[in-house]
């Protein structure tokens, strides 16, 4: 569904992304992992059209979308959320979701009805009339997903949607994401919370210093020496091996 090929992006002297490629098949939940500063969010902003890559291409459903502005990409069915949640503070929860729903429903009545339907599906039924600014972090994360879903997008790019949540909240969001996937949506998610990645993603990619250093199931990746070293430092894999044998 999504094919990212050889993305490269430089910020001044910093090579933020170097020849990074990934694939997201339809109906999958794909993880994008990596230590802080590895280039995950840069990768997202390029895929979603917020930043232009220096080279490389992005294809959605076979169509080249490289360099299209974000609103066009959203119209084609791919939407991103933000790591730092960005609710429209002056609006209620329902009106927030409706902003997404307006993309496919021109009338206010229909957009609000769609927003209500999606809000309820995400367990926010009781919060719909509350100002979005009054939501807790967990509520705001849900709101990000709800707004993205309301645009009618089929592919959702979630940027650290679990960060800052307590374990029970993580479990709830994991359940919600799985349910949405089963209804026919596809996910590409940046995630630090390993509990979430391990239980959700079928495939994951690992970025380090802007390069894709590994790809596989989460279970394979946590045993991959290159991945372990990316997180724990040079030589860590060998020391872990020794420790395991000792």
């Amino acid at each position: 569904m999504l094919e990212v090929r050889n993305l490269t992006k430089r910020f001044g002297g910093l090579l933020a992304l170097s020849d990074a490629s990934l694939d997201v098949p339809e109906g999958a939940i794909v993880g994008l992992l990596g230590p802080n500063g590895a280039g995950k969010t840069t990768c997202f902003t390029i895929i979603a059209g917020f930043t232009r890559a220096d080279s490389g291409s992005v294809r959605l459903d076979g169509q080249d979308i490289t360099g299209l502005p974000p609103h066009r990409i959203c119209g084609l069915g791919m939407v991103r959320t933000f790591q730092i949640v960005q609710p429209f503070a002056g609006l209620t929860v329902q009106e927030n979701i409706a902003v997404g729903a307006y993309l496919r429903h021109e009338s206010r009545r229909e957009a609000l009805a769609e927003a209500r339907r999606i809000g309820q599906r995400l367990g926010m039924g009781a919060l719909l009339d509350r100002p979005a600014a009054s939501l807790t972090i967990a509520g705001r994360k849900r709101l990000e997903i709800a707004r993205a879903l309301a645009t009618g997008a089929r592919l959702l790019l979630l940027d650290e949607v679990m960060a800052g949540l307590i374990p029970t909240e993580v479990t709830e969001i994991v359940g919600i994401i799985r349910q949405i996937r089963d209804e026919g949506h596809t996910f590409l998610m940046i995630e630090h919370v390993m509990q979430a990645v391990m239980s959700l993603a079928e495939t994951a990619y690992v970025l380090n210093y802007g390069k894709m250093i590994a790809q596989g199931t989460p279970q394979q990746l946590v045993r991959d020496p290159a991945v372990v070293e990316a997180y724990l430092g040079h030589g860590a894999a060998a020391r872990l091996q020794e420790a395991a044998h000792a």
Partner: peptide
């Protein structure tokens, strides 16, 4: 309220 979020939502 938030221009980036608006762009992401297809505006």
């Amino acid at each position: 309220e938030n221009e980036d979020a608006a762009r992401a939502l297809g505006i």
